[in-house]
Structure formats: C-alpha cells, structure tokens
Computed example of a mutant assay.
Amino acid sequence: MRAEVFVVEQTCPYLDLDDKDTHPEVVHLLGYQDEHCVAYARCLPPGLSYASPSIGRVLVTELARGKGYAYTLMQEAIAQCQQQWPGQGITIGAQVYLQDFYQKLNFLPISDVYLEDDIEHIDMVLPGE
C-alpha cells in the first residue's frame, strides 16, 4: 500500500522499506474500511528519524480519500506517540501541499522548504507538554 501511494501514485521511485520498519519501538497504525486496509502511519521513537518522536509514511488510499480518515489517523498517531513517549513534542517531515492539514492538527513549521525524493517537504512539530 505504501508503494502504491508513494512510489506509483506520486511517481517517486525510492526504497520504501527501511530499517525503521522493524525497530522494536515503532508503532504501525492500520486503518480499515470494511475488510480493506485504506490508511497507514508509523510512529517512531525519539532518535530514530528526529530527536523527538515522529510520525511518518502517513497515507490514505486514493479510493478512501475525502472521508476524514487522514484526520482520524493522525489523531490516533498523535495519541500513540503521546502514550509511548509522554511529554515530548512530535516532529514530522510533511509534504508542503499538506502543511495546512497538519496545522489544523496544531503542528507548526520549523524549517524551510526542502526537497526529499524530488518532493517539497517542510519539517513541522507538535509541541510537547
């Protein structure tokens, strides 16, 4: 599913699977519509991608978009990070076109725009408590 969205749909050839997927503290979130997996995100512990906990590989499949699943998925990912690593901020590397979406979840931009795999990104943080 990740390859379908990130590699095929976004025409971005890169190695999706990485050593972070099997790290013992990573939390993988799956969202289902009926019996079909339509949403995914992973929560990463501090020090794996950023100094703080982070959320990445966030996706909703094309046919499931527009139903609020991404917002629900991110709310759950935030809750999981706060439960696993309480009191810490959460950092994301957001695709720039989704910056407004993440700001609605209270993430704040903390970097300039940069290219990652030929796609504009910006680092954002949800401040800790």
Rank of each mutant, 00 (worst) to 15 (best):
D21H: 08
L73F: 06
P127L: 01
Q75L: 12
V96R: 10
Y71P: 00
M74T: 01
P53T: 10
R2L: 13
G93W: 03
V58F: 00
A77G: 11
N106M: 08
L44G: 00
Y40D: 00
Y69M: 04
E116W: 02
V8W: 09
A64N: 13
Y32K: 11
L17M: 04
P53C: 08
R57F: 04
I122T: 07
C43D: 01
P24Q: 02
V58I: 09
L108G: 00
G31W: 10
P24L: 01
Y32F: 15
Y71R: 13
G56L: 04
D112Q: 04
Q99I: 06
L44I: 08
M1A: 15
L15R: 14
A77Y: 07
L30A: 15
F107I: 08
H23M: 08
G93C: 15
Q83H: 10
Q88T: 07
D18P: 13
A51S: 03
M1P: 12
D117V: 11
G89Q: 00
A94S: 15
I90C: 01
Q10S: 14
D19A: 13
Q95Y: 02
T91K: 09
I90A: 02
H28S: 08
D34Y: 09
T91C: 13
L98I: 09
G87P: 10
M1L: 14
G66I: 10
C37W: 02
V5Y: 11
D21F: 11
V60P: 01
L63N: 08
V38T: 10
Y14A: 07
C43E: 02
Y32G: 08
L73S: 05
V27N: 03
E76A: 15
